[in-house]
Amino acid sequence: MSTTSTVVVDEVTRSFGRTRALDGVGFTAGQGVTGLLGPNGAGKTTLLRMMATVLAPGGGRLTLLGLDPARAEDRLAIRRRLGYLPQEPGFYRHFTAFEFVDYIAILKEMTDRRSRHDEVRRVLALAGLAEESGRKIRALSGGMRRRVGLAQALLGDPDLVILDEPTAGLDPEQRWRFRELISTIGEDRTVLMSTHQTEDVGALCTQVVVMDNGRTCFDGTPRELRELATGRVWLSEARAAGVRLSWRTGEGEHRNLGDAPPKGARLIDPTLEDGYLLLLGERALEPAA
């Protein structure tokens, strides 16, 4: 996909007890924003935790920034160039936003007090929290806490930014702010983000990887994912039989996804979500191995 790959995931596996969370995932990602799409339990978080060096692969090969996270010195070098927002970042709720980001900055080896504080102010301003930096985290809304999480991920201008569902739980305005910020970050570095929102992928990502059951089932551009549904999305007056998915839209018509056009239906341009739904639908229809 990319000429210079910051992230190489090659047949990576991982099990938790008898559960196979990752079953041979493989793709590469370079500069820009790469979106990981997939249903719950697809293995997105497990994969992102590996990329954040929090979890080691059970098998396969993972290369980050040209380094091998299985080696201690490489892992340290990766962590020095990494920003990570977990799916559910924990906070010291009695800390202010400034104090918390300052705490993480110390863990990121920023020992000079003055320059560290300048950096904390910079990332809080980037996340739109300049006015809230003195408020206790327990007094912040869920969206603001998410922004505190994002701010700490941006400390030190990392080359690789891992964001696990950064837009989850945000209202539309906050989501747009996040999208604007993430797209800016992705202009000159590698961002990997997981999401359930196909709108996020369409708005932000240069590359999309769809995962299901611990495997990669699509790796391409958002346009290529959308084109999977070209010629397979129809609008009809009545609910159609024999299509993969069909639902009534707000305008009273039925949107049908599938290969067999209902009688009297008209073909329409697909969306990214149509491509995603058809892709997962096909996976679901495959016979079990």
Partner: peptide
């Protein structure tokens, strides 16, 4: 115990 445990692991400290 530590709410910021995972963030701490991903940091170089």
């Amino acid at each position: 115990i530590d709410p910021a445990h995972e963030l701490g692991i991903a940091a170089p400290y």
